[in-house]
Design a protein around this nucleic acid. Structure first.
Lengths: 213, 213
DNA sequence: GTCTATACGGTGATAGAC
DNA sequence: GTCTATCACCGTATAGAC
């Protein structure tokens, strides 16, 4: 229970600076010099702590990728909540995560597309077990009266609706809000309830109208 | 009505090669040498046709950004279709576009986040008039019985559900399909109907249940 | 551990022959 | 228009003093 450290150790300062620069510029766009400046040290020291730019990047990326898949599975598997409550909690937590880390979605998407191979490696070592996900499909499918495939699509749609407004912020903000950043942040806040409403109303509408348009 | 040109002129070959390399690697990751190789020419010729890497990139980016906002507004404004038909057409066309240009979403998102400023410039010169969009909101809101703000959220959710499965392909494919690319392409095909169903059922469910969960 | 100085390769861009 | 050769610079990485 140490108090907040005002003075971080060098490695901590590097990691913090590297996170800022890498998440903003990406591996290709980032410069070791900029990270050094940001951390208040010089380039040589970066190589002393982390052997190469690549190694430093991977250290950051591993952490951020795990942030990207937050501890949301327990929410969906909980047996204390109805599926409506699960949806509200899930969406609320996920969007809150991105409100706190606005650059996370764009960063992860960029790097994952730059080098799709690394994903496979990081997934197996992380705590994203596909076993748990299969269980999520089964439980939710049962509760919602959907097939396993339908749950899959619903899950992707929900996640899309949470992530994309952050990953595409520069576009959406410009096209739909004329560049007004305050209005857009307001819009992002509203998403918490709106996205959950979407999913819940979809399930309601689906139960009622089966096959007639 | 000339027949398909087997032999393209040099500028055409450059643009084609530049599109491939830039969309895959981004501005920072792309190398002029690689573009030259891809086009079957040498670096000097790239600078002869386009003065700099930046200029060549912008030529590509302008085109791709306009592709990203396809001619979908007329669909939403048509007075020959019900809103259900509009939704099905919209989603179908949009996802088909990405099936034909799988790297478009990741490319645009990456570059737009790298340099959010350029967006503002390109938007005003493009044919994305916010005037038309305001009209879309109004018309759809009336047809669906939604407020202007609710239409905005619905539109973003729909677009998110179309784009994100492509922008996040490497992640989703690995986490949910164990890297099975064929299965994932099948999944992307299914999206056409699934996303439309999602929106339509949402609207149905919304009409019926107003306020009770 | 932290610094300065420097090596080394790569990359965008240009000069100039044909 | 197209090529080869080359420049000038930048960025990663290392050597070595303190």
């Amino acid at each position: 229970m140490t108090p907040q450290k005002i003075e971080k150790d060098t490695e901590g300062k590097i990691l913090e600076a590297a996170k800022r620069v890498f998440t903003l510029k990406g591996l290709d766009g980032a410069r070791m010099q900029e990270i050094a400046d940001e951390a208040g040290i010089n380039k040589a020291l970066l190589h002393y702590y982390f052997r190469s730019k690549e190694k430093l990047f991977m250290t950051i990326f591993r952490v951020e990728l795990n942030n990207f898949f937050p501890r949301l599975i327990p929410i969906l598997l909980s047996d204390e909540w109805t599926y409506v409550q699960k949806i509200r909690h899930f969406v609320d937590e996920y969007i809150e995560l991105f409100l706190k880390n606005p650059f996370l979605p764009a960063f992860v998407l960029r790097e994952v597309n730059r080098n799709p191979q690394v994903i496979a490696h990081f997934i197996v070592e992380s705590d994203i077990q596909s076993g748990k996900l299969k269980e999520v499909m089964r439980v939710l499918g049962k509760e919602m009266g959907l097939s396993s495939n339908e749950v899959l699509h619903l899950l992707i749609t929900t996640v899309s609706a949470c992530i994309f407004p952050f990953a595409g912020k520069p576009i959406i903000e410009q096209v739909l809000f004329n560049g007004n950043s305050d209005e857009y942040n307001q819009f992002l806040q509203e998403r918490k309830t709106m996205v959950a409403d979407f999913v819940i109303c979809y399930l309601k509408g689906r139960q009622i109208s089966n096959g007639n348009e």
